[in-house]
Design a protein around this nucleic acid. Sequence first.
DNA 1: CGGTCCCTTGAATATCATCAACGTAAGTGG
DNA 2: CCACTTACGTTGATGATATTCAAGGGACCG
Lengths: 256, 256
Amino acid sequence: MHIVLHNEAPVSRPAAVRCAQCAFRELCLPESLSDGEVNRLEQLIGRRRRVLRDDVLFRAGATGGMLFAVRFGHFKSVQRDRRGVEHITGFQMAGDMLGIDSIGTGQHASTVIALEDSEVCEISYEKLQDLLAEMPRLMAHFHRILGREILREQGVMGMLGNIRADQRLATFLLDLGERYASRGYSSRSFQLRMSREDMGAYLGLTIECISRQLATFRRHGWIALDKRAIELIRRDALVAIAEGLQPDQPHDARAA
Amino acid sequence: MHIVLHNEAPVSRPAAVRCAQCAFRELCLPESLSDGEVNRLEQLIGRRRRVLRDDVLFRAGATGGMLFAVRFGHFKSVQRDRRGVEHITGFQMAGDMLGIDSIGTGQHASTVIALEDSEVCEISYEKLQDLLAEMPRLMAHFHRILGREILREQGVMGMLGNIRADQRLATFLLDLGERYASRGYSSRSFQLRMSREDMGAYLGLTIECISRQLATFRRHGWIALDKRAIELIRRDALVAIAEGLQPDQPHDARAA
DNA sequence: CGGTCCCTTGAATATCATCAACGTAAGTGG
DNA sequence: CCACTTACGTTGATGATATTCAAGGGACCG
């Protein structure tokens, strides 16, 4: 029962494929829905939407009400503070949900931009509500999605709170790996879909700092890096760094 | 229609008072519920629960499933990372909801501790679900609460991301003031219910840094401070600091 | 009175941001 | 194919900023 997927951008699937056959079904649908229930949900799902690299899926301040499930590709969610500095609140990949930040206010709080050519399913929150009322398991699942998002953000808050640049970066890389693993990709070797600048805007660091930390990781042999292709060679070391167990130098840096 | 409340800990209200008369109704209930609907919700609400200062309302890892609405008092939500460092994910006051971080997993993600003698209403998420399915407006309201929490955490992430200690602290103080204002208290003058250490654990700063920044704010006359009583004297200056418009010295610090 | 908790302040250090220069790869147009 | 440009990334030098370590003050309590 292993999902076999390629790490490269999947080829476009025929439009006739629907939720029941979708490779990401377990990510965006509750496992416990009957076929009939899945059918009803499918009728709510609007068109697929292709989003090209650097295109905006929706913009902060725009009227919300639409939810999106990522079918393939990668996105970043960007918020701009008062003085124009951009912060990235998250990176989304296949199976992740977009647009839930508009539920409270009816307006999107962040601008979502595709990091590569991508595709999403579109669903109206208003119509979804009716279905949630009829299908308790779907409602519970929807709440789990919202709860997961709250937990994810709490984790990011903890990461940004206190720790050094190397810890943030190690945490970020390990987290990315785990997310790929849960989608059937390799957790050890993958492409960084975002620029160094994006990583910095997410981790609260400058681009130079990101670059230096990556260089340090590579110098120690924790990772291999070629442009945006990364391999986590020594996960144990990254975990140790992430936990702050080591200042920076494990054995050679000062002795050299 | 102004809510008049004291900034000191309110006296205990008789147990017979229910949601319909609750001073915080508009915070925890949708405005649009009929009396009958409010009645049905009230029947779900379990006992009130008093929580004394420093007592634990619930602990990270404990089985979730219970939601809490703060009636009066203040709480902090604490998460402990791998190496034992505590991060505070939020401070909750009257009308705020606690326990929603257990919705996704069934387990609480944070430990919630009372900062002073407090009281909460208790409601079972499982029972609430049944009602949500029957009452669309209640469901929409519940989603708004979850959405607000997501937005709040995004704001904190932005704050922790990039900015200097003085900006974080100014943002924090202004936010506290706004929250009191929305509850009918003064936004200008209030008690800090948490220790300097707690503020640091929330803002990602050390206790010494908090102390120094507060001293700087006071030296410049932005705030008045006596132990935990604070007055925001020059809100405009704090806003400017929060937005990063000034490095630190407005007119006198270097000239002196 | 002695002790604890919370807070403040000072001095030294570590860490990250900033400024600046340079490198590399991809694309454009001749 | 070769300048030229642009976007992205790397590296070094310097300085700002927060942490760490250390000491002490003040309130509260037994």
